[in-house]
Deep mutational scan, measured.
Amino acid sequence: KKVTINGVEIKFNNPEEAVKFALELAKRLNLRIEFHGDQIKIE
């Protein structure tokens, strides 16, 4: 399963991993996060 985070394609074994990764990243950098299907936007 491929997920695009800020235009960067990252391959994950499952979608939950991708979501956890994105949330952790957003929390660490104190950023806002948006989900659009397989696209995750962090700003």
Rank of each mutant, 00 (worst) to 15 (best):
E9W: 12
A26L: 10
E9R: 07
T4Y: 14
F12C: 15
K11H: 14
E17Y: 10
V8M: 10
V3T: 03
A26D: 00
K1Y: 15
E17N: 06
E16H: 09
Q39L: 14
R32P: 03
E43I: 15
F12V: 03
E17D: 12
K20R: 13
K1S: 13
K2S: 13
A26R: 03
Q39I: 14
D38Q: 06
E24T: 08
K2E: 05
N6P: 02
E9Y: 11
K27N: 07
E16C: 15
H36N: 11
K11D: 07
G37T: 06
F12E: 00
K2Q: 07
E16Q: 11
N13A: 13
V3I: 09
N13Y: 08
E24H: 06
L31Y: 05
I40R: 00
V3H: 03
Q39D: 11
N14G: 06
E34C: 14
R28G: 04
K1V: 15
F35K: 03
F12S: 02
I42R: 01
F21L: 04
E43T: 15
L29M: 08
A22L: 14
E34N: 06
R28D: 02
R28C: 15
E16G: 09
I10F: 13
I33R: 00
N30L: 09
E24M: 12
N14K: 07
F21E: 01
V8H: 10
Q39H: 13
K11V: 14
K2V: 15
L25N: 01
A26T: 04
Q39K: 07
A26K: 02
K41T: 12
N14E: 03
F21R: 03
K1R: 13
E43M: 14
V3Y: 06
N14Q: 05
K20Q: 08
L31K: 00
G37S: 07
N6Y: 12
N6D: 06
G37E: 10
K20P: 02
F12R: 01
L23I: 10
K11L: 14
V8G: 03
R28A: 08
L31F: 06
F35G: 01
E34L: 09
N6L: 13
N30A: 06
T4M: 12
K2N: 09
L29K: 02
K2D: 04
H36K: 10
F35S: 02
K2P: 06
Q39R: 10
V3K: 02
N6Q: 05
N6G: 10
I40Y: 02
K11F: 15
K1F: 15
D38A: 05
G37M: 10
R32L: 05
E34M: 09
H36Q: 10
G37I: 07
I10N: 01
I5L: 08
V19Y: 13
K2T: 15
L23N: 04
K1A: 13
V19D: 02
E34G: 04
A18G: 04
G37V: 08
N13K: 13
F12T: 03
I40W: 04
D38R: 04
T4G: 02
L29P: 01
K20T: 06
V3N: 02
K20D: 04
A22F: 12
N13V: 09
L25P: 00
R28H: 06
E9S: 11
E9V: 14
Q39F: 14
V19L: 14
L23M: 10
K1G: 11
A18Q: 02
I10H: 09
F35P: 01
D38Y: 08
F12W: 05
F21S: 01
I33K: 00
L25A: 04
T4H: 06
L23V: 07
K41Q: 06
R28E: 05
E24F: 11
I10M: 08
I5G: 03
G7A: 04
E34H: 08
L25I: 10
K20G: 03
V8A: 04
A26F: 10
E9L: 12
E17I: 07
E17A: 11
V3R: 04
L23F: 09
E17C: 15
N30V: 07
K2A: 09
E16L: 12
I10G: 00
F12Y: 04
N14L: 10
T4S: 08
I5D: 02
E43W: 15
E9D: 07
G37P: 09
N13W: 11
I40S: 01
E16M: 11
R28K: 07
E34R: 11
A26C: 14
H36M: 12
K2M: 13
K27D: 04
N6H: 09
R28L: 10
A22V: 12
V3P: 05
E34K: 08
L31C: 13
K41F: 14
L31H: 01
T4W: 14
I5V: 09
V19P: 00
I42L: 14
F12D: 00
K41P: 01
I5Q: 02
A18N: 03
K11I: 14
A26V: 06
K20H: 06
F35L: 05
G7P: 04
L31G: 08
G7M: 06
T4P: 03
E16K: 09
G7R: 03
K11E: 12
N14V: 07
E9I: 13
P15N: 08
K27L: 11
N30T: 05
D38I: 09
K2W: 13
H36R: 10
K1L: 14
G37H: 08
L31W: 10
A22E: 00
D38S: 07
F12M: 04
R32N: 05
K2R: 12
L23S: 04
D38C: 15
I42T: 01
E24V: 07
N6R: 06
V19W: 14
I10C: 15
N6E: 04
R32G: 02
E17S: 08
E34Q: 09
L25Y: 12
K2L: 13
N30F: 10
I5P: 03
K1I: 15
E24G: 07
E43F: 15
K20A: 11
R28P: 00
N30H: 09
L25F: 08
H36L: 13
N14Y: 08
H36G: 07
I42N: 03
P15Y: 14
F35H: 04
H36V: 13
E16S: 10
D38L: 07
Q39W: 14
F35V: 07
R32M: 05
I5N: 01
